[in-house]
Amino acid sequence: EFTQISGYVNAFGSQRGSVLTVKVENDEGWTLVEEDFDRADYGSDPEFVAEVSSYLKRNGGIKDLTKVL
């Protein structure tokens, strides 16, 4: 089950073990991109978060400006 990723309007994530599946949706709710990120592939949590965040930004993730990150 996908849940909204904090700080984004149209990005959602689903966690299974160490694998986080993220997706970005358009205004109609269609999935634009979907990608798996395995936490085990990264040396640290900040590196993992930075990679996921960068992916979302590159692929149309819209920041939720009503929330302070």
Rank of each mutant, 00 (worst) to 15 (best):
K57M: 13
G61H: 02
W30D: 13
S18A: 04
N10V: 05
K23D: 01
V33Q: 06
K23H: 06
E34P: 02
Y42A: 01
R16G: 03
T66R: 06
E25N: 11
G7T: 04
E34R: 10
E35Q: 14
S6H: 11
V22N: 00
F37K: 01
L69T: 14
G29A: 06
Y55R: 01
E28V: 10
G17W: 04
G17K: 02
K67L: 15
F37S: 00
A11M: 02
V24A: 00
N10S: 05
A50N: 09
Q15N: 08
Q15I: 13
E25C: 15
K63N: 06
S53P: 00
R58M: 11
L20T: 04
T66E: 15
V52R: 00
E25L: 15
Y8I: 05
D45M: 09
G13L: 08
S18W: 07
G61Y: 04
N26M: 06
T21N: 03
Y55S: 01
K67E: 15
E1A: 12
D38K: 02
L69E: 15
E35F: 11
P46T: 13
D41Y: 07
Y42I: 00
V19A: 01
T3P: 07
P46I: 15
Y42F: 10
G43L: 09
K67D: 15
T21Q: 02
E51A: 15
L32G: 05
S6L: 10
S44L: 04
D36I: 10
A11G: 03
E34T: 13
T66Q: 12
A50E: 10
V68H: 11
A40N: 11
D45G: 08
I62P: 01
Y8N: 06
W30Y: 13
D36C: 13
N10A: 03
E28I: 11
V52E: 01
E51F: 10
V52Y: 05
S6K: 12
V68L: 11
D41A: 10
G7N: 06
T31F: 06
D64F: 07
A40Y: 06
N26L: 08
V9F: 07
F2D: 04
G29E: 02
F2P: 04
E47K: 03
Y42L: 01
T21C: 07
K57H: 11
V33G: 08
K63V: 13
V9S: 08
N59Q: 06
E35M: 14
D41R: 08
V49L: 14
W30R: 13
S14A: 09
G13W: 15
F48G: 00
Y55F: 14
K67P: 15
V68I: 10
G7V: 04
F2S: 05
I62R: 10
Q15C: 15
Y42T: 01
L65F: 15
K23M: 06
K57P: 02
S18F: 06
V33Y: 09
I5Q: 03
F37M: 00
L69D: 15
K67Q: 15
G13M: 14
G43P: 09
D38M: 02
E47F: 03
L69N: 14
F2Q: 04
L20A: 01
K23R: 14
G7F: 05
V49M: 13
Q15F: 14
S44A: 03
T21A: 03
S44Y: 02
Q15M: 14
S44V: 02
G43Y: 08
I62F: 08
D36T: 14
G61M: 05
D38T: 02
S53I: 15
F2E: 03
E34S: 15
T3G: 06
D64G: 06
E25K: 14
E25M: 14
V22Y: 00
V19G: 00
N10Y: 06
S53E: 14
L20E: 00
N59Y: 11
S54H: 09
D36Y: 10
V68A: 09
K23P: 01
V68N: 11
Y42D: 01
A40I: 07
S18P: 05
F12C: 09
S6G: 09
D45T: 10
L69Q: 14
T3L: 12
L56R: 00
I5A: 05
G17L: 04
G13C: 14
A50W: 08
G29Q: 04
V68Q: 10
V24P: 00
Y55I: 02
S6C: 15
Y55G: 02
